[in-house]
Design a protein around this nucleic acid. Structure first.
Lengths: 256, 256
DNA sequence: CGTCGAGTTGATCCACCTCAACGAAGGTGG
DNA sequence: CCACCTTCGTTGAGGTGGATCAACTCGACG
């Protein structure tokens, strides 16, 4: 069948004509039209703004057009736990498809733009657009897998391996987008990153310092230059999890 | 809309007539018939047997009719990590719906029976049976949420809280099935349970001992009697995660 | 200038892992 | 029947990774 990816297709609507996409992906123009009609946005979301909150009734799913988000839960004592990070091309809030309330709060880490798709409308199109259903199920399967891998990373790997894996993950994302894979920009605070990696901020900070003193990285604020990729890979372990995840899951955007 | 649950319905086919189910749930007889035709089994699975293995091509999803399973991944050094446990009414292998290879290996912890549903056939029925699609999406959303909650439990809670939460979870399951909520039978070895709780077996063993010496539980092999439910709840924390999960997710089986 | 949040660094402590030995239960073959 | 093995579970001793508490720096911003 035609194998396309939804996030890429959505962004492509902003750039390409239906005509061109139709020819390129062998989809009917009408299918593309009705899909495009579902897409709202891109909407601008300010840094620190929440897209939705845990427990909200859910009506839409979102695709990150640019920027970055975290999804988090708040536990009994009010501390927040970062469940996931979302970058360009990632979907958020898929539980809306199942008419479930939001499981997490989604907050923008940086100035961002998102596409919004109304869940009810999307469900109506499921049967009409071939491959759409599979694509959505694929996205949800990935979410499960990603979550599991995240858990395994957090609890089988020591702190340095977690950081190394994360750096490699970011590096691969840069490479995928045609930028310098050795030059990273962390879109989030130390606190958020530590939360995602399941560490205390102090531990993360120390770790960055130790990496720097071993000449694996050079740190200036949120800008990180990778200078010991070889060694970082070794630290992350042969099967460093997040990068694998990145390779397997992240199909390049249509126009990347 | 008609709100039914797939696992319950599948088991109900063994017990009730289409006629009765149709009247009870307001579904068309034809829909029920075609749904029933999808169901293979129950198939007997022996203790220790694997239903499928990580990386396998996936063609079916499974629903646990009786018994219990674990899903696990094997990491580079060959150690296995228990990703999830599955009891009566749980689905396994949902990634098959997305035509993805198996993310995990599923192994029976006890003598079990499962229903098998062919993914391709099921997908064909998606558009025809109202609510089926939503139900499957719901199951996948739950899987994501469950996995996140599991991760949070493992990271933010100390060992005793994890064990307490798990005991309460089992207790609620017993209650839900109309049995004595104070009398539990662990279907898995200490090693498997420790893996699921993210602990070393020794730690789990010590913890059980400590619980017993504080008269919270009484242990005889895999049989556990809860004698300090109050205190166990306190240990698990106000928002003990897994039980919440149980309450929210587990709709009683149709004929329970 | 003072204030505030983000980030770093230092000192301390403990929950849990690891290694190791041992006991109990069940299966197998002589 | 006993001797042997394996698997499962318990218990002890010791080491450590990273959390926690606390102080301090730095830049941004009013």
């Amino acid at each position: 069948m035609h194998h396309w990816n939804l996030a890429g297709l959505i962004s492509a609507f902003c750039v390409y004509e239906i005509e061109w996409l139709s020819a390129r992906y062998g989809m009917r123009r009408q299918e593309l039209e009705s899909l495009r009609k579902l897409v709202r946005g891109p909407l601008r979301i300010g840094r620190g703004d929440t897209l939705y909150r845990q427990g909200d009734g859910a009506g839409s799913i979102y695709s990150v057009a640019s920027g970055s988000f975290k999804s988090l839960t708040t536990d009994a004592d009010g501390r927040e736990a970062v469940a996931d990070l979302h970058f360009e091309g990632d979907f958020m809030g898929l539980e809306a498809l199942a008419e479930m309330p939001r499981s997490f709060t989604a907050e923008a880490l940086t100035e961002s733009r998102v596409f919004r798709l109304d869940a009810a409308e999307l469900r109506k199109e499921l049967g009409r657009i071939p491959g759409l259903e599979t694509e959505l199920l694929r996205l949800m399967s990935q979410a499960v897998w990603k979550s599991e891998q995240h858990r395994l990373l957090l609890h089988r790997q020591v702190a340095s391996a977690r950081l190394a894996a994360f750096l490699l993950y970011l590096s691969e994302c840069e490479q995928r987008n045609g930028r310098d894979p050795g030059s990273l920009h962390l879109p989030m605070s130390r606190g958020d990153l530590a939360g995602f990696l399941g560490l205390a901020t102090e531990t993360l900070s120390r770790l960055l310092g130790r990496f720097a003193s071993r000449n694996l990285i050079r740190v200036r604020g949120r800008r990180i230059r990778l200078t010991g990729l070889q060694e970082i890979s070794r630290l992350a372990g042969k099967r460093y999890l997040i990068p694998v995840l990145c390779i397997v899951l992240a199909q390049p955007l249509l126009f990347a």
